[in-house]
């Protein structure tokens, strides 16, 4: 049984024609690839004549990154604000006209029936905490909805003072140490515990005052209220408590300095 089967198998193998086309095609492809790689190697290695670039060295020019000198804009995430897109959407469709109250003309009025109006369902009033959104500093350029910090930094005169900036002069860039001094002095003379604890965190009151040559402040005015009278008053008192911010720098040629200051609770 066994030998019989073996003999049959052998016979079958001998009768089957050998596969020629498969290996032949494989061989052609392999040789073709080989030739192509040799040609391309020769091409890239410069055995063929073509325009040479960038001097004798290689095929590339050496460059230095210039990001030290030129401020590269920060990477920005795609802006999904429709107002900032280049292909503005068409004007919104006009609002649908209000549905008129339909009166069933076929209905026969029932004499004596008092029509009851449906009771209005009381809409739960969502209590929103009295929250004053912190007013945005107005000294920043705002383009569309982009964050102002995405602007290249190098064009601003001074980036050392954080939110401190200057309007109509270069005091802040010439004398940042004096501006730091104002912050430091106000930090010690403003008493936060004077503020009503119910004041929302992040509330800001903006004051304007004048510093004279000898460093004494005057004309303390409320520029923008925080909505919390105690915060407004405590910040004003903070300025009034200061005897002197120190004489204005000798190199500063004006007689007074106008300061806008905010206290943030």
């Amino acid at each position: 049984m066994n030998t019989l089967l073996e003999g049959g198998e052998q016979l079958e193998r001998e009768l089957t024609p050998e596969p020629v086309f498969g290996p032949a095609a494989g061989s052609f492809v392999l040789h073709g690839l080989l030739a192509a790689s040799i040609v391309s190697y020769a091409f890239f290695a410069g055995f063929f004549h073509h325009d040479t670039w960038g001097g004798s060295g290689g095929g590339a020019i050496q460059v230095n990154l210039v990001s030290d000198a030129v401020p590269l804009p920060a990477e920005q995430k795609p802006n999904d604000n429709v107002l900032a897109t280049e292909t503005p959407s068409p004007a919104p469709a006009p609002p649908a006209p209000k549905a008129q109250e339909t009166v069933d003309t076929t209905a026969i009025p029932i004499p004596g029936k008092v029509e009851q109006k449906p009771k209005p369902v009381p809409v739960p009033v969502q209590k929103t905490p009295v929250h004053q959104p912190p007013p945005k500093p107005e000294n920043r350029a705002t383009y569309g909805e982009q964050a102002a910090t995405a602007m290249p930094r190098a064009i601003s005169p001074s980036a050392s003072n954080g939110p401190t900036s200057i309007n109509g002069g270069d005091f802040g860039s010439k004398f940042p140490w004096y501006v730091d001094g104002i912050n430091r002095k106000m930090g010690t003379s403003w008493y936060k515990p004077e503020v009503d604890p119910r004041t929302p965190k992040g509330s800001r009151v903006f004051l304007i005052f004048t510093i004279h040559k000898d460093g004494s402040p005057s004309d303390v005015q409320l520029d923008r209220s925080s909505g919390s009278p105690t915060l407004d008053r405590s910040c004003q008192r903070g300025v009034q408590r200061v005897d002197t911010f120190g004489p204005l720098p000798a190199a500063y040629n004006q007689s007074t300095l106008k300061v806008s200051y905010y206290c943030e609770y």
Partner: peptide, 18 residues
Amino acid sequence: LDAQDWVRTGTNLGNDKI
């Protein structure tokens, strides 16, 4: 006419020792 410079500043900007 009395031109003067402006400075805008505020609290919470760091009050560390120099």
